[in-house]
Design a protein around this nucleic acid. Structure first.
Lengths: 243, 243
DNA sequence: GTCGCAGCGAATGGATCCATAGCCAATACC
DNA sequence: GGTATTGGCTATGGATCCATTCGCTGCGAC
């Protein structure tokens, strides 16, 4: 149906806008991305083109392009004449992503720190406090994501922030699974790391900020390596797509 | 039985040089990627869907998907209801990519060094010698690319090598422009850095290898920053796509 | 003379239709 | 009774056709 496209003055909706994108491909991609990140579509879940098309009231063509876009982002895999699935990582791949993040995010942080406003720094502390008071896993995930991405908000290099966002997206599901089995001592360490990172940011000390952030990611990677069971959960079909 | 098709949709495939991808989208993407990397399509050049479609004997649909793929790789930009162009970087963006490479490629190298075979190391030295004997810019570019990517050949983490490949692709044109105006002393430094990197690789010393590689990329970035004229060359249309 | 608006053309985005390649199951043969 | 082959079904890939939108050009008004 010809839904009035609202003629967005500036299309340029560069990812994660979530709202009405001018082009259907982006809208479908945003929808699927949100579904994957929220856990509604789990790794390994089959994505049927016409099912998604019918659900969103579009034809299969935008869905196809959206699947290409998401595949390029690493969120889906598309096999010729076979179908599309939500990307599933094995432990080695996930460790690889963490190794990349270990190098990349400190760079993002260094590029960001000099440009952070006092208001943003204050918000960092607020979020950190909220995280320490949070017991709910989903809320922790959302806050943790907001915290870290906010520390990178001053990064002027779009390439870096784009990549950082992508890796946070591709590992979202495994972070959720990982957060579920963290013990109290694990939370304490995370809180300590967050405090140290924020304190270094307040001092505009990029060296220390990088150091603590590297340690934060590295420690998470090493912990992750001790839980291979996170990657063995067979998801088989799950076409019901509900949780 | 033995008919194993295995026409895997390998994104950013290692250039099978035959351009015989099973799916047309990939074939078109490979063709356009090669055209961009070879310099046939320069940054800022307009890419017309039906022109490419006619040239490759396909319909516009695979071309559209190919443009999405290349856009995700950073090689093209697509504007809604407007068209597609070869990505053009300003100096800040190019510096950003170099900053990323400065962090990422040492990681790729560290992951690769323990897995490099003696034959590969020997080939590294051969390529380095060839580079030192080369005066031709295009030949230098090809050899330099082969050299560095070969140093990363042992990296088992596909995510890393994929990204490294992508960044080498997106900066290919600027590397070419940059190489054209390098003086003799510049070449000497490059050769020295290559020798040091390879020597460290031979010793399986990942720390030194990372150190020299970081310096290599960083120095290139700083040199690049002194040549803003590389990014001001207006290319306007260039639909003839010849050089 | 310059700015603005309207109309036209061309290129892209989207939808529908057809061909093809896997996958599964049923059947026939060993 | 088991296995292999074949046939049908389904979902994706590709092509063509239509709608939309952006840009350009020409004309008119200030």
């Amino acid at each position: 149906m010809s839904r009035k496209p609202t003629t967005g003055s500036e299309p340029s909706g560069s990812s994660t806008s979530g709202s009405s994108a001018a082009v259907a491909s982006q809208r479908v991609a945003d929808h699927l991305r949100a579904a994957i990140l929220s856990g509604e579509l789990r790794p390994g879940a089959r994505i049927m083109q016409e099912q998604v098309a019918a659900q969103l009231g579009a034809s299969r063509l935008p869905v196809r392009e959206a699947l290409r876009i998401l595949a390029a982002e690493g969120l889906t895999v598309v096999k010729s004449n076979s179908g599309a699935w939500v990307s599933r990582m094995d432990m080695a791949e996930c460790e690889g992503v963490y190794k990349i993040r270990e190098r990349l995010e400190p760079l993002a942080l260094s590029e960001s720190v000099p440009n952070l406003t006092p208001e943003q720094v204050a918000e960092l502390e607020t979020i950190a406090r909220q995280i320490e008071l949070t017991a709910d896993v989903d809320r922790f995930l959302a806050l943790d994501r907001r915290l870290h991405l906010l520390t990178y908000a001053g990064c002027r290099v779009a390439q870096i922030t784009t990549m950082v966002d992508r890796f946070w997206n591709t590992t979202q599901h495994y972070r959720r699974a990982f957060a579920r089995l963290a013990g109290d001592s694990g939370w304490e360490l995370i809180h300590a790391e967050h405090r140290l990172i924020i304190e270094a940011i307040k001092r505009a000390d990029t060296v220390d900020a990088e150091r603590f952030l590297t340690g934060h990611i590295r420690r998470t990677r090493l912990e992750l390596a001790q839980h291979p069971e996170l990657f063995t959960e067979d998801d088989h079909d799950s076409d019901h797509a509900a949780d």
